[in-house]
């Protein structure tokens, strides 16, 4: 990570909480449709990050052992497994498939 990224992300992350609690909150209270849209942003964007990390290599789409690991993680999340179990399940699946 660059120093610029560390500074910009620190401001961006902490600043959004302040903006949420004190500026956006009162604004959204009067606009329920906007509030609903805002609450869906993380699902769409974080999923895009997940997809990129799972099936892409640079700008090429590739299907490899990572996909199996993330699929196992998805199953574990759906079964409400603890965080540590999800993470270890994904790593173990991917590592095992690479070993064989």
């Amino acid at each position: 990570m660059t120093v610029l990224a560390i500074i910009a992300l620190t401001i961006g992350v902490w600043g959004q909480r302040l903006a949420g609690g004190f500026l956006v909150g009162p604004l959204l209270e009067r606009r329920p449709a906007l509030a609903r849209a805002a609450s869906l942003i993380p699902a769409a964007v974080v999923m895009a990050v997940i997809v990129q990390l799972t099936v892409a290599n640079g700008k090429t789409l590739v299907l490899d052992e990572r996909l199996a690991g993330v699929a196992v993680a998805g199953l574990l999340v759906w079964r409400r497994a603890p965080f540590i179990v999800v993470v270890l399940g994904a790593a173990a699946t991917t590592a095992l498939l690479r070993a064989v």
Partner: peptide
């Protein structure tokens, strides 16, 4: 694979 799995959780 841990990286996307953590985000999923």
């Amino acid at each position: 694979a841990v990286f996307p799995a953590a985000l999923l959780a």
